[in-house]
Design a protein around this nucleic acid. Sequence first.
DNA 1: TCTGGGGTCCTAGGACCC
DNA 2: TCTGGGGTCCTAGGACCC
Length: 414
Amino acid sequence: MGEERLIYHVDVNSAYLSWSSVDRLSWGESDLRLVPAVVGGDAAKRHGVVLAKSVPAKAFGIHTGEPLSDAVRKCPDLIAIPPDFKIYQRYSRAFKAICRTYATAVQDFSIDECFLDVTQTTAYYHPVETACELKDRIKAELGFTVNVGVGPNKLLAKMAGDFEKPDKVHTLWTEEIPEKMWPLPVRRLLSVGRKTAEKLNLYGIRTIGDLAHCEPANLQQVLGNKQGGHLYRYANGLDDSPVLAEPQEEKGYSVSITLPKDVRTAAEARKVIKRLVDSVAMRLRSKHRRAKRISVQIRSSSFVDRSHQRTLDHATDITREIEATADQLFDELWDGVTPLRLIGVALTQIETGSVSQISMFDTKDLERERHIDQAIDAIRKRFGTDAVSRGVDDKKLPRVGKKYEARFEIDRDQ
DNA sequence: TCTGGGGTCCTAGGACCC
DNA sequence: TCTGGGGTCCTAGGACCC
């Protein structure tokens, strides 16, 4: 058994909106955090959902994930700005760097959240004071606010960080569970989503306390062994997962796009797949990894998702090989009629290490394909992603992954 | 309600092997 | 030719997270 731990969860308040606001302030523009404002995608491209909202926008009942059009209906004066992931990466790195000065281990949880193990630091003796100091330092040095949740494990720290926002420190110690956590609706418990909450409600389980006092065997009957046991432990505040400081290796790489207009022909779909594969394969190679499994996902205009996957007998990082497989999977998956709203490609079963010689190409062609991929990767590394494309006239096509446009082309079919 | 994109983990059924 | 069971891998889909 380990000793008592002390964990912080640090969460940037309305991260995208805060970061865009701080950036705009540095350009002399007004502070969007003080008015009804959201960060959202381009509605004309059908990417129009709310990614982050200001506190005044929240007061109008605007929720993250809802369509921008609904948000505007709730608040006609709403200001909507597009996301800028470049600056978000910068601010993300900056606040995590400050976090690292307080902890022996920091786990990246997402772009705007991290866990700190501060057990072996002086914070152990002043948990709340130190958390306040961390929060205030981030505000003073970087200009945006965070919530810090303080608890004996990651679950309770994260639940605490969620209590009251923004710019707050909360504790959730084991002895505070009945008072602070059990009265909350089950939906608020980490890993209880809409579906699970509905299912639990059917059995009269409404609060986290109800869940905590269930017979675990009954819960496992309803939710399955794994999820049942897992939620029972969570509801009782039990979580012994460590703060993992090492960056976790990705289990897969995926890319998908909601198309500005439904795709209705195989020719159009192939162009999209080409661009998706190009983008995700480059990411794979940049990490020096290869993938054994390739999957293609489609979403119909009526929001029905389907997918098809194939495990190869070898791992590959060759764009053309991935594309050929993805094309084939798509042909097997699509009925040729249903209008498609979204197309996606995912690479999983990731391998690292020496390059496989096995491939759909013979040795000479394999060399050639590898050379082409390397040449394109190198050009993009030097001159930017925009510098080269792979022979699709992409001016009319939606952009995928990182932005790029055709300036000159390597056409491998010549 | 006209509904993004990138991930992780789990389940269930079938194939295949011993 | 019929029977049984366990283990592992594969595929499709679902739920959840930020």
